[in-house]
């Protein structure tokens, strides 16, 4: 079972993307989408060493909602900073210790950091324990690191990793 159907979640996502691509929900297209969703992970199985497991799907939905709101806020923040006085910005690099272990969760966190207020993830250390973050305008680096930890890292840990 596991060998012939390695990634059920990925299969559903691929089927969904296929339906969006063809822009129809004709039964034939649904079958074709599910077939593609089954075939593609099977053929690319060596690129997916670990199975994706979501422990708390409803937390994921809630988390996506928070991110969307934060993205909109981030846009206004950055727009204000760009239009304001760029000379007065206080950019800084922050090295943030990570509690996440799985690859997927770390890449998720790095993406979210880049999409949200005034921060870009810059580099993951070789031992995967520290993520370097560049902040556009920051006065208190520790406070920012704590905000990222409590707001994004903790929910991701609950969603993708068994506690």
């Amino acid at each position: 079972m596991h060998r012939f159907f390695p990634h059920p979640i990925l299969a559903l996502i691929l089927a969904g993307i296929w339906l969006l691509l063809v822009n129809s929900i004709h039964p034939g297209q649904i079958v074709l989408g599910l077939l593609l969703g089954w075939m593609i992970p099977l053929l690319t199985t060596q690129f997916w060493p670990e199975a994706v497991r979501i422990y708390k799907p409803f937390h994921l939905l809630h988390f996506v909602g928070i991110i969307l709101i934060d993205i909109i806020q981030a846009n206004f923040t950055v727009a204000r900073l760009v239009l304001g006085r760029p000379d007065r910005l206080q950019p800084a690099f922050i090295s943030m210790p990570l509690i996440l272990k799985s690859d997927l969760a770390i890449s998720f966190l790095a993406n979210v950091i880049t999409l949200t207020p005034g921060t870009v993830s810059a580099r993951l250390s070789h031992d995967r324990c520290h993520l370097l973050v560049h902040a556009l305008d920051v006065t208190n680096t520790e406070e920012l690191a704590n905000t990222i930890k409590s707001r994004y890292e903790k929910p991701l840990k609950e969603i993708f990793e068994k506690c």
Partner: peptide, 23 residues
């Protein structure tokens, strides 16, 4: 505009990644 107004590479990268997502 952020690309022009901001001063170094690392801050410039903030403009295109953020302000454009909402745009």
């Amino acid at each position: 505009l952020g690309l022009v107004r901001l001063k170094d590479f690392y801050t410039r990268i903030h403009g295109p990644t953020k302000a454009t997502t909402l745009g």
